[in-house]
Design a protein around this nucleic acid. Structure first.
Lengths: 153, 153
DNA sequence: GTTAGATTAATGCAATTGCATCTATCGGAG
DNA sequence: CTCCGATAGATGCAATTGCATTAATCTAAC
């Protein structure tokens, strides 16, 4: 095999990974979202935000921290917080020590919502992911995917 | 290890796969889209449509065929075709034998656009996928992802 | 202390997506 | 032939996302 052929084979392998990554990502994401919706629950992105806030503990998080944790554009996060706040799941609090900023805190309703969503979410992951893999395959896939995830700056 | 513990480990593995799948999918997708945009080119979904139509050959495709090939909701496809048609990349033609339907055909401009996009797209896949994997890892990852892709109905 | 530049967050407006519904045609049952 | 349910595709309207810009505050240099 020439060097050129090897590079070609490599490129093809990359394209195959890309196609399947996109397809698997879209399909499973759509399936999980659909399960949440079918249960009358809000979308995944709400769960992510609530989860990050719950992890952060009592004092909450600055929006820009949440933004980085969720890989979300600034304006998208701002509006997600609008919705979460309107629904009573988070509170925007004054930020001691930085007049520009805020602390976002989970409310009791927010904590409850996250707890309500989790069983449905977990079950969806089970249905659309876990079931299709044995232990070895799952470990291997998780490791391989980790190679693609860009380390956080 | 008890049966319960095994089930737990399995669930955890599934959740790990899920998280990384979502993250890798989002990150690489965003990076590839950004590369296209930086080159002044339209989004990936345009490429996909043009590619499917080019594969389909001279007579084109029915919208519902394209819809299935692209895993796109009917109204989303309808509007994507509006945009592609407005930009002169596809033509909606009368469908012989089915008065409800149409044949979507690639125009010369559409063919040219796809050809223009491909080098940028290929390079993006290389940068964001191929580079991070050796041949074995790529093959293994592609195989593992295939386990998650739901076979087309 | 003033000021220039950076950082934090919000917002007006356009593009896209999602949902529900609508029109037109098809195809088979009677 | 006529009617009815099913299929193909479009569209009005609401929600979300993306883009560009804005307002307020902070930080550091002078």
């Amino acid at each position: 095999m020439t060097i050129k052929q090897a590079a070609q084979a490599d490129a093809n392998a990359g394209v195959r990974v890309w196609k399947r990554l996109v397809q698997a990502g879209q399909q499973t994401m759509a399936a999980v979202e659909a399960d949440l919706k079918a249960a009358g629950l809000p979308p995944l992105i709400w769960y992510d935000a609530l989860w990050e806030l719950e992890q952060a503990g009592e004092e909450g998080l600055r929006p820009f921290e949440l933004e980085r944790a969720m890989l979300l554009a600034q304006y998208n996060l701002s509006r997600l917080l609008d919705r979460l706040e309107a629904a009573g799941h988070v509170a925007r609090c004054r930020c001691p020590g930085d007049g520009r900023g805020q602390m976002i805190r989970l409310t009791d309703a927010g904590r409850l919502l996250r707890q309500t969503m989790w069983p449905v979410y977990a079950n969806a992951i089970h249905t659309h992911i876990t079931v299709h893999l044995n232990q070895g395959e799952a470990d291997q896939l998780a490791d391989a995917l980790a190679l693609l995830v860009r380390p956080r700056p």
